[in-house]
Design a protein around this nucleic acid. Sequence first.
DNA 1: TGTATTGAGTGATATTTATCACAATGGCGT
DNA 2: ACGCCATTGTGATAAATATCACTCAATACA
Lengths: 209, 209
Amino acid sequence: MLTKEALKNIFPDWEDGLYEAILKEAELKEAKAGTTMLKMGQNIKSAMLVVEGTVKLYQEDEDGGEYFMYHLNPGEACAVTLVCNYHHEQSQVLAKAVTDIQYLAIPIEFMEKWLNEFKSWHYFVIRTYRSRYEELLKTIHETAFKNMDERLEFYIKRHVKQFGKTINLTHQEIANDLNTSREVVSRLLKKMEHNGWIIMNRNAFEWMK
Amino acid sequence: MLTKEALKNIFPDWEDGLYEAILKEAELKEAKAGTTMLKMGQNIKSAMLVVEGTVKLYQEDEDGGEYFMYHLNPGEACAVTLVCNYHHEQSQVLAKAVTDIQYLAIPIEFMEKWLNEFKSWHYFVIRTYRSRYEELLKTIHETAFKNMDERLEFYIKRHVKQFGKTINLTHQEIANDLNTSREVVSRLLKKMEHNGWIIMNRNAFEWMK
DNA sequence: TGTATTGAGTGATATTTATCACAATGGCGT
DNA sequence: ACGCCATTGTGATAAATATCACTCAATACA
């Protein structure tokens, strides 16, 4: 069970009553690494606040394609689930657990209520939207202006920042995240290896740059 | 000069005190069609709320490229300018006046203050971020998954929704917005003409689909 | 220990988009 | 009416990316 102290560490700057409301109303849930936590088109029933682990957020295509947008870390929340005034609001994003996850699920009926009740919740929602908006801007910048080699580099750097210099991803997984093909990723990584930017192993490689 | 009644029409759902604060503190400014209202990297000194006209928001590249993201209409605000707690916050977007514009410029020192003071302002900021976030999701979707022909179609449809079936843009302007070349746009438009989707004139064309 | 499976390497080719070069057209000002 | 200039049309070619068809290597596991 989560204590108030633990909550304070993960979500600082909240007011007292908010911690108590969370402890009372939110359900602490778990998700295994690799699980899909939220699908596109799915009805949103609760807000999702990450307590432990890393979540990846995607834009999903009609025919199965996925496009990686950004990570969610402990203390962060899935923006789209935070403001669902109307019933049957559908998710525009796909969320997947990268690691084993602990998260707080708060039924959406509290969202409107808490916006009124807790100033610190209000700020939290705004901060969340602002930072997610900025992440999207970066994603658009890469996608709109850069070729695949630069996009791959950006992708790897983001991964390194999250998880360190050892990248445990197959070329296929990277290709999926970038919505390109495995062959393209393989060839570009080979080029990076020639340049001395990475050292490749099976199922993983090291970022040296 | 703006009256409180006029403000109420453009920005409904605000509380009384907020209208008065706006009338007191905001400056009603104008911008000519074609003007750049906010550049990337520029220090943000005031929030921008559109009163009259249409603004286009872009992501800007280091070497001059522009990528169109979405429109701002009367009653809408530039999200990035709404939450600038810290001084010297720099714009991540480029804003251009499409038509002649009237807008409210509110010095950023009021942003923090009004978040505390006016609940309806708080809601306005959240609504703004939410809707802009959703626009960005659409933009990413098109950019990441679609080829140029579909992206062009999406672009035209958005334009039609804004301004009607007559599109008064040169091929070059469209190409700039999509970060492609004029030749590509010309050829794709020609294809659409063959398909009977558009009727082309000089400097303009009609959307028939 | 052999065998199946998954991940990676790579050539050949197709498709999409970008770039270059130049011609044709139409509108606008003088 | 003429000429200029912005706009559009279009072929040729290059570059980037996607797709197909394999091979080869590693490791999982029976």
